[in-house]
Design a protein around this nucleic acid. Sequence first.
DNA 1: GTAATGAATCAAAGCGCTTAGATATTTCCT
DNA 2: AGGAAATATCTAAGCGCTTTGATTCATTAC
Lengths: 368, 368
Amino acid sequence: MAKGPTVYHVAERAGVSIATVSFTFRQPEKVKASTRELVLAAAEELGYVPSASARGLARGRTGALGLFAYDYLLDPSGGPGGPGGPGGSGDLSQDVDAPGDREDGNLRLFPLYVDEVQRGVELECWRRGQALLVGGGNPANNEAVLSDIAGRVDGLAVFPRSVPVEALARIARRIPVVEVSESQRNRSVDHVTVDNASGARAITEHLIRVHGLTDLLFIGAGQSSDNDERLEAFQSVLKDAGAALHEPRYPAGSEPAVAEIVRAICQQGTLPQAFVCATDQDALVVMDVLAEAGIDVPKQVAVTGFDGIAAGRVIRPSLTTVRQPMERMGRIMVELLLDRLDHPDKPPVELRLPVSVVLRESCGCSPA
Amino acid sequence: MAKGPTVYHVAERAGVSIATVSFTFRQPEKVKASTRELVLAAAEELGYVPSASARGLARGRTGALGLFAYDYLLDPSGGPGGPGGPGGSGDLSQDVDAPGDREDGNLRLFPLYVDEVQRGVELECWRRGQALLVGGGNPANNEAVLSDIAGRVDGLAVFPRSVPVEALARIARRIPVVEVSESQRNRSVDHVTVDNASGARAITEHLIRVHGLTDLLFIGAGQSSDNDERLEAFQSVLKDAGAALHEPRYPAGSEPAVAEIVRAICQQGTLPQAFVCATDQDALVVMDVLAEAGIDVPKQVAVTGFDGIAAGRVIRPSLTTVRQPMERMGRIMVELLLDRLDHPDKPPVELRLPVSVVLRESCGCSPA
DNA sequence: GTAATGAATCAAAGCGCTTAGATATTTCCT
DNA sequence: AGGAAATATCTAAGCGCTTTGATTCATTAC
């Protein structure tokens, strides 16, 4: 395994200069066909694989993009707590896993929001022949990891709240960065977001107009600017709907607290007519708690989410929500990054994508 | 965005040599504390981010591992075809997505086998401070992509049947490679597999002994050596069980054909007592077809899978299966790769991990 | 036949970093 | 105080590739 062959070896073997070898791979049309054959043959025989490090150094570009995915397992926000009981646990169950392969609870049963966006990033990178580096934190050494990634790629995609602002700014000084949402936080980098306001407005109006509900409770504000925008739209709809409505209530519940909040409401018996949740994940938690409490959705209370993650389709009752074009967002991030590489001085972009309401069972729409 | 600062800039600013700058980052203990501060301050001010290309070139190691994930969307094998109808499609449904954000059918509703292994790889890489490059094919230019990745990393993890043997061999000449399963195919690289035989044996015996079934049909052979091993164990159990059993039937159905096979069986009315499937994905397809045909699982026929993917927990009836420690396998792949880097000449390893039977509803075990 | 033109190839200068080995500085003894 | 030993820093030689500008070779035109 003696340190693979290099251009020099190939060049020697083919009886040409290293420049010709390089050209053969990077600009084949500049090399006479016969020579090209020669070189390729030599390369093949030697098992030559060009070193990306050397290329990157010489060219000043690595040809890779980066994705910083913070580690959800270490994320305190808890999971969807979806359906699917623990499976058959009768006395026959040998459901004992090999040690060290824990179950993750229900957390990772379904791909989450970020997973779906990430998939878009992956697909687009592959389509464009870009390598993709996915980095994860490790909240501890986030900074170090981030800097490491930044040093390896031509551009970086980051998820909301996964990177401290200063760190982001630092990276952005060196390579293009595109962030999902949070457009207020750092105006110097590109952003891709969705039209939170329209989505929240549409779904809220649906509950009011179609289902005639008047006592709506917003769950899950305060976590991100996305959530805030959704809440704001929600409030404005309530206001517009006028006096007919009950006093709106919207606890700015942080995620871990969502279950607690709903549990408390159940106990007090002060159930609203609908829980309008800031995210699907919140909604799943809410539905879970309601199920625990023996409260029927949507008969006793409606629940809506926001995002359109897979779990919402599968869970029963299925979740009425606002779908974001997640994969598309990922693809666009890649596009923006690549674009920015060619036009470093264009002013920062903020793309807002449209969303669509998806009516399912949890609001009372579908044949339950 | 004038090409970020380099060691030279930092060195100048801090009034030291570039060597000292390098040491400050790579071997801080070799640098006097006061100097270190100086350098770090300079770096900070300048927004210095070390170039991984240069480092990789100088060190002969990139510090990244690679994962070659073939592109499932382009994979003809079809998806789980899980539960979860199309959602509320009443006349109110505005379920129209932004163009370009197709739904993928049910294909990606749940993380699949490879996803879960991949997650293990990711987690372990992050834990160990390794960067992870995920490459996708694009069946068209697989070779090119693969070679590109190979040039960027210190080691490569590949999934079964995603890379042609010759290509694999070529890569393996240059960097360590570890493959999931398929240990017969290329004996020169490391492998991690599970104990397919035990798993298949255990689940088959369960059906026979506990549920008293005698007419078992194996579905989904011939796709991989994993499947073959499972089939073999299945057959051997049938044989051992002796004369009491019906003639076993095991069409070597290729994946796309599974649905067809089962459909045909339903129409002919020649239902076995159980479908023993080579993979969970096969089993999901089978259950889907059975549901279509109005056949009750497990009352009329039992179904079992193999793998332990998430969908099997969520689907109704939940799927009895053999669980592989998928995340663990991913982690181990990373371990093997890193290990191999230090010991290039150790003989190839083949790790077989234990599996565990997970009894759920589809075999008739749980409270349906 | 030769000058002019274009095509194919090459020589050589980096790209930004790491790391021996050389050199300078400090510390510790006697 | 003087010198050996230990520390800290520096000098310089690459790592394997890309790419510019120079050189060589093959054509074409007169």
